[in-house]
Simulated assay, not measured.
Amino acid sequence: MAAESAEHVVLRGPEHRTVGRVMTILEAVIASEPAGLRLADLPSLLDAPKSSIHGLTKGLVAAGYLRENQGRYFQGPAVYVLALNTSPIPAAYHHALEVLSKTWNETALMATLAGDAVINVDIAEANQVIRASPPTHERRPMWPGSSGKVFLAFMDPRSRDSYLSRKHTEPGERERILAELETIRETGVAFNRGESVPDLYGVASPITTDGLDVTLAVGLAGPATRMAASLDEIAVSVRETAQRLSDLAAAP
């Protein structure tokens, strides 16, 4: 009897209450799609003070499981990543990667943003002996990858500055990064010229949806010896692919 009572104490402890609240928030937000859910809607569901719920939602946004837009919460890309094994990306998205890969005979990829990390969710590999083989379903740093640069460039300024203040503390480095991000916003294309892996180039462009943060990017990666001479043309091709997928995402 004593052992049973102790077990009940553990199950009702604060750690389990927190897990329950987190899962309730996730379930409620997912059920509210596509309209989203306001913070004010959550206290009645959780029987918890708004201050406690705000801390949990901030943590879920930081980890990529929720995203916040104009005071409403929506499902974040990290939830999508959890379901990848049973819910693959739309066939039209993968087809676009295959076309881009075949056009240049380099590896095409699609990445998503999850908190401070970039996750490759799908790839179409080149038919080359020496080729880029980026990992999928693994969290990677945003900087200096081309997809991560895209997410930083189109991130809201407060989140971007918070990331830079934590990850890039040298003032000169931050100024250089901010200047590059401004160029990416203007052109819609980000480059990684051997910054992550020597002699490996990457080009990426955002998939955009009006009124929502950029959480998907399409890119192409391959050896510098093959990509350098055609980098401008590759950039146009990647940007056009991203635009087609943006139009597809916006279609009713």
Rank of each mutant, 00 (worst) to 15 (best):
S5T: 15
H8C: 13
V9E: 11
V10I: 14
G13Y: 07
E15G: 09
R17I: 05
V19G: 01
G20R: 06
R21L: 08
T24C: 02
L26M: 12
S32F: 12
G36M: 09
G36E: 10
L37T: 09
L39Y: 10
P43A: 00
S44N: 11
K50V: 13
S51A: 15
S51F: 10
G55D: 05
T57A: 02
K58M: 00
G59L: 02
L60A: 08
A62C: 10
A63D: 10
A63W: 01
L66R: 01
Q70N: 15
F74S: 03
V79P: 03
Y80R: 14
V81E: 10
A83F: 08
A83Q: 13
L84G: 02
N85M: 10
N85Q: 14
H95N: 14
H95I: 12
H95A: 13
H95C: 12
A96P: 03
A96V: 05
E98F: 02
E98W: 01
L100I: 04
K102L: 00
W104D: 00
T107R: 06
L109A: 13
L113G: 02
A114P: 07
A114E: 15
N120F: 13
N120I: 15
N120W: 11
I123Q: 01
A124Q: 02
A124I: 04
N127C: 10
V129S: 05
T136W: 09
H137N: 13
R140S: 14
M142T: 04
W143F: 06
W143S: 02
P144F: 08
G145V: 00
G145F: 06
G145K: 01
S146F: 06
S147A: 15
G148V: 02
D156F: 06
S162M: 03
S162N: 04
K167D: 14
E170Q: 13
E175Y: 07
A179D: 08
L181D: 02
E182I: 05
L200N: 05
L200I: 14
V203Y: 01
V203H: 04
A204H: 04
P206R: 09
I207L: 12
D210K: 13
D210E: 15
G211S: 09
G211I: 11
L212D: 13
L212C: 11
A217H: 00
G219T: 12
L220R: 01
A221W: 11
G222D: 11
P223N: 11
M227N: 04
M227F: 07
A229T: 14
L231R: 03
V236W: 08
S237I: 11
S237C: 08
R244N: 05
S246T: 15
D247P: 05
L248H: 12
L248I: 08
